[in-house]
Design a protein around this nucleic acid. Structure first.
Lengths: 184, 184
DNA sequence: GTCTATAATCGGATAGAC
DNA sequence: GTCTATCCGATTATAGAC
């Protein structure tokens, strides 16, 4: 791509979107400054005006990830299906905009320029707190998160959904409902 | 490191071990031919005698991963704690030799040279079959795997173990025991 | 704010000696 | 089987015009 995808968005955002797409498609080695610039429809020099180095680019991506993922987590607090169903929504994994960012960040895991792991841990911790706010049994809350993160892992490796996945989610949701009923 | 770690092992294996360590420490971009060679205590030329290209090196790593992980899965069939406890063993995640390989491969996800995702999917599918051979409810079997893979994901980002993790495992093991009792 | 041109470095791979 | 030397392309980053 050599033309700018979206002229209404600020260049910074367009660049970060391009980085995200390239990370998902080809991992960190595909996300060169030139490739990112081309995908964003700007020149290498143009990109480096906004992000002075590759490190700054990566850091900008992680900063945006944390803002987005906190907003997403907060949003589920008022979701009609409830936090549990929202976190476990099988169909949204790998297609939802905010989960795309997380999967892209996972592809970045291990690079030395920035602390990707730290940002991801922070994001997952925040999610745990949100889930635990709705399920007063911390063990059950953690179980919900781990099942969801299992789905994330499989999305990361592009594994096709198992027929059982939807039923697993239903089962976990039922487990939570049982717990809430028992609490009275 | 400039001296060969283990002279008794064949060079091929030493090289693959070095690749694994570098992937875990610094991701795919840290695993350059030169860095791998240095960590293995051989020269770049020496490395390239055994693996003719970077692609061949990566493929060799994935081939070994599949052999190892199938052996590991088969081994749990006769494990005293049972397949479920073995797959969910929290303490072994991130330290066990065979899980180290999987985590290293996850760090390789997205590279264009080889089909990392395909190899990982194959490995996880094999594990599912092994688990499902011991739990005749496919939904419950998948739940066990997803919880375990959630633990894998957190190990991948170096997240510290939650206090709840051990209890989550105990809870899942209990769920399986319940099911087996109900089956009679 | 965005571009082109270029410098400096790094990574993968080959050739050939030992 | 392992090493050194070397080539070539790719990648990060800078300088300066527009």
């Amino acid at each position: 791509m050599s033309t700018r995808p979206d002229r209404s968005k600020p260049t910074r955002e367009v660049v970060l979107d391009a980085l995200e797409t390239l990370l998902l498609e080809g991992g960190s080695s595909a996300a060169t400054l030139e490739a990112v610039a081309a995908a964003a429809g700007v020149s290498k020099g143009g990109l480096l005006y906004h992000f002075g180095s590759k490190e700054a680019l990566y850091q900008g991506f992680l900063d945006r990830l944390l803002v987005e993922s906190r907003a997403e987590a907060d949003g589920t607090l008022t979701a009609p299906e409830g936090v549990v169903a929202a976190y476990l929504d099988v169909s949204s994994v790998a297609t939802d905009p905010s989960t795309r960012s997380v999967l892209a960040a996972l592809r970045l895991a291990g690079v030395q320029e920035v602390d990707v792991e730290g940002a991801l841990v922070e994001s997952f911790e925040y999610w745990y707190e949100v889930i635990a706010r709705r399920i007063d049994d911390p063990v059950l809350a953690r179980l919900v998160q781990l099942v969801g993160d299992g789905l994330y892992l499989h999305a990361l490796i592009g594994s096709v959904q198992h027929d059982e996945d939807e039923q697993v989610v239903a089962r976990v949701v039922a487990l939570v409902a049982e717990h809430e009923a028992a609490q009275g």
